[in-house]
Simulated assay, not measured.
Amino acid sequence: MPKDAAVEEFARLVRALKARDGRSYEALGRRLSVSASTLHRYCSGATVPEEFAVVDRLALLCGADEEERRALEAAWTEADRARRRTASPVPPLTPVPTAPESTAEPAAPEPGPGPAPDPAAPPAPPNRSPRGARAPLLVAAAVALVVLAVAAALLGHATRKGSAPAPAATPPGRAEAPLPFTWSVGSQLWEGGCGHTYLVDRAPRAVAPPPVAADAGAWAAKHSAVHGGEALVRITLQGRSPSDAVVLHALHVRVVDRATPLPWSAYRMDNGCGGAVTPRRFAVDLDRPRPLARPVDGVDASGAEVRTIPAVSFPYKVTSSDPEELLVSARTADCDCRWYLELEWSAGGRSGTVRITDGGKPFRTSGIAGRPAYLYDSASAEGRWITDAKS
């Protein structure tokens, strides 16, 4: 029997996520807390997960953006409905009770004149007994029971405990209300504009010289580099109105994957540091079971003296004329962590949560303890990476 089209579409999207990531069913299953065979059944369409949460974790782990995750959730909703339709048991047919048969035959009406018989037509079936005439009633009753069972199953699905009805589609021509503020994120920052470490799965001779900080993103993408030990993420927020303030209530850290630190070499970008200003700084310890964004003192080292900028906790307010910049320092020694941030806000009777990601993918930070470490020797004639004696 062919699978439902909705289930096939959902399975196709899950297979695409798995293929994009490249890891085995067993490796992905460990990170999702499901067995390899269960994940394989999702990909083949043999089954549909009871809840969307496990599929959402898979999407985040494989780097799906917001639009892909919305499409995946819509496909899961339709597939889940199809699964419940096919899983609903059909109740057994119950005979319709009938009154005891009378010993007297009912009087038949006088036959009226009819059309002349067609010699080519097949002979008419023999007259049925009154018991045979009750068969259409039994069939009609069975059909009614099946219809009632299916309706009850669908109603139970829509109101089952712990779930909510599928969100209504946005009517054509009506867009969702825009956020009352704008935000942008920078994920390739260096401490003080100079100090940073990347993990790269290449030998020193295959690694280009360190770039200037402004070109860090292109260099990291070219080498498939991962932040080593610490990742700095800058979030810039600005209201859309000069008078109506947006209140920022909290910043949450969500770790979607933990693995053993990468066994790659560490390349240090240090090339001499200058002054820097780091206000509104938040420290995150990714090695904790539930990491928190903890406000810490900032530093102003742009002048002759280093000045401490006291930490300020939430809430913050932003308008179009009074923007805000948050700097998150996420450190780890024990894991290869994939994570993202959630920012709670409210304004003008509205409220919500914005998910802060690295271009639609989780941020990634890996420990560097015990890894071979290199510095770039720019003083030599040819310029080359040399072993860091301090490592």
Rank of each mutant, 00 (worst) to 15 (best):
E68T: 12
R41D: 15
R174T: 12
G370D: 07
V207G: 08
R84T: 02
R240C: 00
E176M: 13
R331S: 15
R258H: 04
T38N: 12
V299K: 05
A135K: 11
E176I: 10
K161C: 00
K361R: 14
A259M: 06
I309P: 00
P92V: 14
A208E: 13
L145S: 10
A225D: 03
P323D: 12
R69V: 06
P91I: 13
G274K: 11
T86M: 11
K361S: 11
R31Y: 03
Q188P: 05
V55E: 04
R57T: 07
A175N: 14
L13S: 09
N271W: 08
A333V: 03
P109M: 05
P279W: 05
P291I: 11
L292A: 14
A389R: 15
R128V: 15
H196V: 06
V48Q: 03
E230V: 13
V212F: 05
T170V: 06
V328P: 02
V48M: 04
L61A: 12
A250S: 15
W190M: 13
A347I: 06
A75T: 07
D377R: 08
P113T: 13
P126M: 10
V299Y: 05
R281V: 02
A99P: 02
V207Y: 11
L148T: 10
T332N: 00
P167D: 03
G359M: 01
P119W: 10
L199S: 05
S224P: 01
A27N: 10
A231T: 08
T38D: 11
R281N: 02
L232G: 07
D377Q: 04
T170N: 04
G193W: 00
P171W: 08
R31D: 06
H227G: 02
P117N: 05
T387L: 08
A266E: 07
G383I: 07
D21F: 10
S320Y: 10
A64D: 04
R160M: 07
R307W: 00
R41T: 15
S184E: 06
P171S: 09
T260A: 09
S321D: 13
I235C: 04
T197A: 09
R12E: 08
A311S: 12
G303Y: 02
Y25H: 13
T159W: 13
S163P: 00
A71I: 00
Q238P: 01
D244F: 03
A369M: 07
P165F: 03
R69I: 07
H252Q: 15
E191Q: 14
P180H: 10
T319N: 01
